[in-house]
Amino acid sequence: MENQITDYKSIPGWGMDADPDNEPTYPMKNYTGDDHNRINYERSVQQPVTVEILKSNERPTVSAVFGTSVPPSGLSGAIRRWAFKHSEDRYRHWLPLILADRINVYEGIIDDIKKGHFPNILAERGFKATLKHNPKKIIRQVITGVVAVMVIKSMFKSNK
């Protein structure tokens, strides 16, 4: 910030060719000049932080409201916490989040079983709809599965 020029309006020609109608975001944006006030606007009151919120390191504080849907937990949560130490510009932010999402799937299954609910994965994948509207796909998948098992079996046999 110490390099910031404060008397820029004294630069010869400053603002001479400015054309307020040359606003490429129009009509999406009703330009008011407020952008130059940065984050100095009247904020709504702050929602109390009652669960762990992972905040982007590209902003100073959490936003006035936020979702509290699924706080980070378990191994996936640890990975997410690590990911949020890095900016949205970095692969090391996004790729670990995808890894955490995949791990979270298995955590979800374990969590279900712990609660005495064995997940019906076929139903969760909408099997009934496939059976009704595209039974050929199921037949194809069954045949592919059977052929794959037979090929693997015959490979094992020939290795012996």
Binding site: K55, S56, R59, V62, S63, A64, F66
Partner: peptide, 12 residues
């Protein structure tokens, strides 16, 4: 800018 603390690239 006040609906998503988790990313600056998208609003809530």
């Amino acid at each position: 800018h006040e609906s998503n603390p988790m990313a600056t690239a998208v609003g809530g």
